[in-house]
């Protein structure tokens, strides 16, 4: 009991330099954030493609996209991460062997970004599809009637029109992405949650380290919330408040 409380207040364990583990935790946070940002951006690319495919694609493309979003959303992220992690690295190595190249060791970072991106892509497809559909037809038709080219319609009408509908969903997904990176601990990516457990296992101060890591995650969330609020205010300018 006394030992445990002493371990709780062993702040020197959080020092940045090697006897302390603070530097290790911060490097883990950096990995987590890299995976989150990379996966989110990859997911956004998939989402834009998927949403356009679902709205304007042919029947086959639409059905395939439906299967993709349904499957990804019905299976736990943990299972998907395991499947995609092994399947993704395996597939890449098969391709490399087919091309006559050496087997490559895929870094945990790249694999993590791929996995989070595929998962995020399914959810972002749905969010963006809904946002695209929320832009009234008449507005785009009016823009076409004024002689704007399709790209101009996209830039001037569709994108600004869909943004207020997309921002809440997309910001929610960003918060989910930052937290989903923790699941990569299960496949051994040295992100924040895994290095925290290692630090706790080495020093036996589990409580201290998990609380510290929790604070780091919380800070990411709260900072994101501030930025999200600014973006939302910008996106919703000119629209009367709902409540």
């Amino acid at each position: 009991m006394i030992d445990w409380i002493a371990g709780l207040a062993a702040w020197e364990l959080l020092a940045l330099e090697p006897p302390g583990w603070g530097g290790v935790l911060l490097r883990g946070l950096a990995v987590s954030l890299q995976v989150a940002v990379g996966g989110y951006l990859l997911g956004f690319l998939i989402g834009v493609g998927g949403a356009t495919g679902k709205l304007y694609g042919g029947p086959i493309l639409r059905d395939i996209l439906d299967v993709y979003t349904t499957l990804v959303r019905a299976v736990p992220e943990l299972v998907l991460i395991l499947l995609l992690y092994y399947a993704g690295t395996d597939a890449l190595n098969q391709i490399m062997i087919l091309l006559g190249a050496e087997r490559v060791d895929i870094s945990g970072l790249a694999a993590g970004i791929f996995v989070i991106g595929v998962v995020q892509g399914a959810y972002q497809t749905e969010v963006l599809r809904g946002a695209f559909k929320a832009v009234p037809h008449g507005e785009t038709e009016a823009a076409r009637a004024y002689g704007m080219s399709p790209l101009q319609v996209l830039r001037r009408i569709t994108l600004p029109g869909m943004l207020p509908h997309a921002v809440p969903g997309l910001s929610n997904l960003w918060l989910i992405a930052t937290k989903d990176t923790a699941l990569l601990a299960v496949v051994g990516v040295a992100e924040l949650t895994l290095v925290t457990r290692q630090a706790g296992g080495t020093t036996k101060s589990y409580f201290l380290f998990f609380c510290a890591a929790g604070l780091l995650y919380l800070m990411v969330t709260l900072l994101s919330n501030v930025v999200i609020r600014l973006i939302e205010r910008h996106a919703r300018r000119g629209i009367p408040a709902v409540r």
Partner: peptide, 21 residues
């Protein structure tokens, strides 16, 4: 805020390893 702002895996390990110890 705390529950929604931190990963569930971290909460789980905090309880299991932290409280358990």
């Amino acid at each position: 805020t705390v529950i929604r702002g931190t990963p569930l895996l971290l909460q789980l390990w905090l309880l299991y390893y932290g409280l358990g110890s």
